[in-house]
């Protein structure tokens, strides 16, 4: 189910701290990836700030100033993180009520949910909330392991239509009806 073997995907293995095996797991290599992303964001922020004009005459703080400071700070922090990682620093994943950190990351479920979210973004303006909301709920519940997809779809439809009317009529927030214009 999951890629708990993890040799191919280093980021797929969560630090097995607290488990019986206390072998040195080596550096948390996925953190280098995080450091790289941070450095890119920081560098981009600095470049973006450099492209700004001088601002209004009465602006004591130029629009670019904060960008320079924050961008450079991000780059610096990225370097520090990379150094810490090389010296054996490991990230500790967040625990929670339904979280089981002893298992590897379940990439299949994650990819499924990402797919559902992307589909939601692509369809929401066209089909409207009542349809997309139902698909979103049913898709997410199915991906998360409930295989009764007909029942999921029914629950999703009830939820999305009820929330549409609740927002439109009850709260006065006019969510566009989308493809069901005239039906709802």
């Amino acid at each position: 189910m999951s890629t708990a073997g993890g040799a191919a995907t280093p980021s797929g293995v969560i630090a097995p701290e607290g488990t019986a095996t206390r072998v040195d797991p080596g550096p948390d290599r996925a953190q280098y990836g995080l450091a790289a992303v941070l450095a890119v964001i920081g560098a981009w922020t600095v470049v973006d700030s450099a492209g700004l004009g001088p601002g209004f005459a009465d602006q004591a703080v130029r629009p670019a100033a904060f960008g320079y400071v924050i961008g450079s700070a991000l780059v610096l922090l990225a370097v520090l993180l990379a150094v810490a990682t090389a010296r054996g620093d490991r990230a500790e994943g967040e625990a929670g009520e339904d979280v089981d950190l002893d298992r590897g990351t379940d990439w299949r479920t994650l990819a499924g949910l990402a797919g559902v979210l992307v589909a939601t973004v692509a369809l929401i303006d066209w089909l409207g909330w009542a349809v997309v909301g139902a698909l979103l709920f049913a898709g997410a519940a199915t991906v998360l392991g409930n295989r009764h997809w007909v029942r999921n779809l029914l629950i999703g439809a009830v939820l999305s239509v009820a929330s549409w009317y609740g927002f439109y009529v009850g709260l006065g927030i006019p969510i566009p009806p989308g493809v069901l214009d005239g039906v709802l």
Binding site: D98, L113, V116, L117, T120, I124, W129, G133, L136, F137, A138, A140, A141, T142, L144, G145, N146, N152, I155, G156, L159, S160, S163, F167
Partner: peptide, 16 residues
């Protein structure tokens, strides 16, 4: 509450 419904519901209301 079954976990698939719980987390599907959280995503549903987050998107809404």
């Amino acid at each position: 509450i079954p976990r698939p419904y719980l987390y599907a519901g959280i995503l549903f209301f987050a998107v809404l």
